[in-house]
Amino acid sequence: MTSAPHRDDAIRATGLSKRFKTGRSYIEVLKSVDFDARHGDLTMVMGPSGSGKSTLVACLSGLLRPDEGQVQALDQDLWGLRTGKIDRFRLDHCGFIFQGFNLFSALTAVEQVTTVLKHTGLSKREARDRAVVSLEEVGLGHRLNQRPSELSGGEKQRVAIARALAKAPRLLFADEPTSALDGENGQIVIKLLQRAAKEHGAAVICVTHDPRLEAYADRIIHIEDGAILDDRRVTSGAHPAPHSHLIEA
C-alpha cells in the first residue's frame, strides 16, 4: 500500500515486518508494511494503541532493525549500513521528538541543543549560534539559560524540538509529541513541526492519537494491527508537482 516513486520521496519502506517475542509466542507487530514519506510533508501516522505506530517509526528511523523489508532513506539502504554508519546517518539527517522531553536536568536550554550539535563537528561558537537561532525559532529566545526545572512542559517540548531541528534534519520523527501537553501547547508544537516541513523542507513523520492535529497534516496514514489501512492526502502537498499523481486507495 504505497504510492509510486516520487521525486520528493524522503523515505520509502517496503515489506517491513517486525515480530516480538512475548513469552513463548511471537506477536507480529508490523505485517509487511509499505510506507513512504516526502520532503515538505507533515505525514501523520494514526491508529489505535498497540497497532505498531511507534514500532514503524523506530524501523524507519534506524532505531530498530526490522525482521524483513527494506528502508530507502535519502536514497540510502538504511538497514544495509553498518551500525556506526546508521548512527552517523541519524546524526546527519534525523531529528526526534518523543512524548517525554528527555532533557538533561543539569543543562540549560542552550546547552541541551549544543550538546548534540557539538557531535556534528561544529565548533563551540557555531554550535552556540545555531542553538540560539534554533531556540529563537521555537519562541524560546528569552529562555536560553533556563534549566528544565524552570521550564513549563510546553517549553520543555519546544527545547526538545529546537534540539532536534538545530541539526537541520531532512527527516523528522515525532512520536506523540503533544500527548503530555495541553491543547494550546499542543498546537504550538504541531505548528512548529509543520513549519519544519514547509520552511525547511523536512519530511516530518508524526505519530499521534490526537484528532485535533489532523488539521495540520498533509497526509494521514491509518495503521491498525500492524498494517496500513488507509492513506490519504489532505492537502495538495507542499510542493505541488506538475505530474501530480493519485494515491492508491
Binding site: D87, R90, L91, D92, C94, G95, N102, T115, V116, A164
Partner: peptide, 18 residues
C-alpha cells in the same frame, strides 16, 4: 538516572563511543 536522556542523544545520532 539519566538513561532516557542518554538514549535521546543516541537517537539523535550521538555514538556509543561518545
Amino acid at each position: 538516572a539519566n538513561i532516557k536522556e542518554f538514549a535521546s542523544l543516541r537517537a539523535l545520532g550521538v555514538s556509543m563511543g561518545a
